[in-house]
Amino acid sequence: MNKAQIFDFFSRLADHDPAPRTELEYGNDYQLLVAVVLSAQSTDVGVNKATRALFRDVTTPAQMVALGEEGLKEHIKTIGLFNAKAKNVIALSDILVRDFGGQVPQDRDVLTTLPGVGRKTANVVVNTAFGQETFAVDTHIFRVGNRTGLAPGKTPLAVELKLDKRVPQPFRRDAHHWLILHGRYVCKARKPECWRCIVADLCRFRAKTPEPTKG
């Protein structure tokens, strides 16, 4: 895509959804961090079901440390990899209490030093919580970036860097939300719903899925 096409691409997504946001449920920056860590290889729906009761009682890192690993496991045992995730959440919470006054760091590189926090998770947190213009590349964005020709790359980092270079203002802050939602609900992995895609004419994907016949 050229610059004009990319601007048009995001203009249409913005017109369709002017205020996109994560589908994870949270009440503060710390809960957002925990929810994103838990969402790795899990669905947002599944994480939300597991954290609703948890987040009613636990709103700070200190409260999470007090809950303990076994207590946390009871809340999140329906989530994939819950044993490892519980260990990481307790460990990162302890570090936040000990080294950061219970506050979530606003620096992406600092966040990635916390247990269970990779670059994608850190990008989500600094974008959603602090408004930084970052591009968290999950499987949906990786697929959309490559399939459409918006930001082709062989690795998530390559796609992220290309998005950072190509996405113009005023779309940079919300770009990754639009792309995630588009990949989740329209540009699906197995069978993209091209017939109802608002950017289909800008997309380089050749094997576009036709509208299903009714009857």
Score class of each variant (00 low, 15 high):
residue 94 D to F: 00
residue 132 Q to N: 08
residue 95 I to Y: 05
residue 204 R to S: 14
residue 193 E to N: 05
residue 23 E to Y: 13
residue 211 E to D: 01
residue 114 L to D: 12
residue 31 Q to W: 10
residue 158 A to L: 13
residue 19 A to K: 14
residue 200 A to H: 11
residue 159 V to K: 04
residue 54 L to Q: 03
residue 181 L to W: 13
residue 123 N to T: 04
residue 192 P to V: 11
residue 118 G to F: 00
residue 163 L to R: 07
residue 200 A to K: 14
residue 42 S to A: 15
residue 145 G to V: 07
residue 97 V to W: 06
residue 146 N to V: 10
residue 24 L to A: 13
residue 56 R to C: 14
residue 162 K to G: 00
residue 122 A to G: 15
residue 209 T to H: 07
residue 144 V to D: 05
residue 70 E to Q: 13
residue 53 A to S: 14
residue 39 S to A: 15
residue 16 H to V: 00
residue 171 F to I: 09
residue 153 G to I: 12
residue 205 F to L: 05
residue 103 Q to T: 14
residue 169 Q to W: 04
residue 111 L to Q: 09
residue 201 D to S: 13
residue 19 A to C: 12
residue 213 T to N: 13
residue 119 R to E: 12
residue 75 H to S: 04
residue 61 P to W: 05
residue 81 L to C: 01
residue 136 A to P: 06
residue 141 I to V: 15
residue 22 T to A: 10
residue 71 G to W: 02
residue 174 D to E: 12
residue 100 F to A: 02
residue 53 A to W: 01
residue 76 I to D: 02
residue 20 P to H: 11
residue 183 G to P: 07
residue 166 R to W: 09
residue 176 H to N: 10
residue 82 F to W: 12
residue 119 R to S: 10
residue 71 G to S: 05
residue 27 G to D: 14
residue 9 F to E: 02
residue 34 V to C: 09
residue 32 L to S: 11
residue 70 E to M: 09
residue 56 R to H: 15
residue 211 E to F: 00
residue 17 D to H: 14
residue 151 A to H: 07
residue 186 V to R: 08
residue 68 G to T: 08
residue 134 T to A: 15
residue 149 G to I: 10
residue 196 R to T: 04
residue 125 V to E: 12
residue 195 W to I: 08
residue 165 K to R: 14
residue 127 N to S: 15
residue 1 M to P: 10
residue 13 L to H: 07
residue 199 V to W: 01
residue 17 D to E: 15
residue 54 L to H: 03
residue 82 F to L: 12
residue 13 L to G: 08
residue 47 V to G: 05
residue 45 V to A: 15
residue 60 T to R: 12
residue 32 L to M: 10
residue 22 T to I: 14
residue 36 V to H: 02
residue 1 M to E: 05
residue 201 D to Y: 01
residue 26 Y to R: 02
residue 205 F to E: 08
residue 202 L to Y: 00
residue 37 V to F: 06
residue 136 A to M: 04
residue 143 R to V: 09
residue 74 E to Y: 00
residue 48 N to P: 05
residue 13 L to K: 09
residue 70 E to C: 01
residue 167 V to I: 14
residue 181 L to C: 00
residue 5 Q to I: 00
residue 52 R to L: 11
residue 80 G to Q: 06
residue 79 I to A: 09
residue 37 V to R: 01
residue 186 V to A: 01
residue 198 I to Q: 06
residue 107 D to I: 06
residue 99 D to I: 09
residue 150 L to I: 13
residue 126 V to K: 00
residue 40 A to I: 07
residue 171 F to T: 12
residue 138 D to G: 11
residue 16 H to D: 13
residue 90 I to A: 04
residue 124 V to E: 03
residue 168 P to R: 00
residue 64 M to H: 03
residue 92 L to E: 11
residue 115 P to K: 10
residue 16 H to C: 07
residue 134 T to M: 13
residue 39 S to N: 03
residue 127 N to P: 08
residue 181 L to P: 06
residue 21 R to L: 00
residue 89 V to E: 06
residue 80 G to H: 07
residue 18 P to Y: 06
residue 177 H to Q: 11
residue 190 R to I: 13
residue 212 P to N: 10
residue 172 R to V: 03
residue 10 F to S: 09
residue 73 K to P: 06
residue 163 L to H: 02
residue 139 T to Y: 01
residue 157 L to D: 15
residue 117 V to W: 06
residue 110 V to L: 12
residue 38 L to Q: 04
residue 32 L to C: 09
residue 40 A to C: 08
residue 202 L to R: 01
residue 51 T to A: 03
residue 126 V to A: 07
